[in-house]
């Protein structure tokens, strides 16, 4: 599994993952992903468009990092999952608690939109 990070103009940390987010994949990215999230700002986007496989163990990792960010007032978003990955996010309910966006542009637009009720 490969991981690349990129800081967007608005300060969002964009983490691109590529490969299988299975037990071996999670093990290989756990340290750099934790470091990227620790070093990043309050908003982190994980680009899943190159992730071909997501199993329970990958969900645990994403949820753990989402909680870490939420505790410090930040947020985690997921971007561009493939069909099978999107289905896994839906059926487990993850898509209801970690926002999923079609692409980075949609995620950026959502972050600039006024909060509901404001």
């Amino acid at each position: 599994m490969q991981l690349h990070t990129n800081r967007l103009a608005d300060g969002t940390e964009l983490v691109l993952l590529a490969g299988r987010l299975d037990s071996a994949g999670v093990a290989s990215i756990e340290a750099p992903l934790s470091a990227a999230i620790a070093a990043g700002g309050s908003r982190v986007l994980v680009d899943l468009s190159q992730v071909s496989f997501l199993a329970s163990i990958g969900i645990r990792a994403l949820l753990t990092h989402a909680r870490t960010l939420a505790r410090r007032g930040g947020s985690l978003g997921l971007v561009g999952p493939r069909a099978v990955v999107a289905e896994v996010l839906d059926v487990t309910g993850i898509a209801k608690i970690i926002p999923v966006f079609a692409d980075v542009e949609a995620a950026s637009a959502a972050s600039k939109a006024p909060a509901p009720g404001s």
Partner: peptide
Amino acid sequence: RASARMDESRVGGWGIAIVRHF
């Protein structure tokens, strides 16, 4: 398993839900 919640302590247990879906 119920849907995941951000504030719950339990992490995991989705495997069979995923298999039932597919």
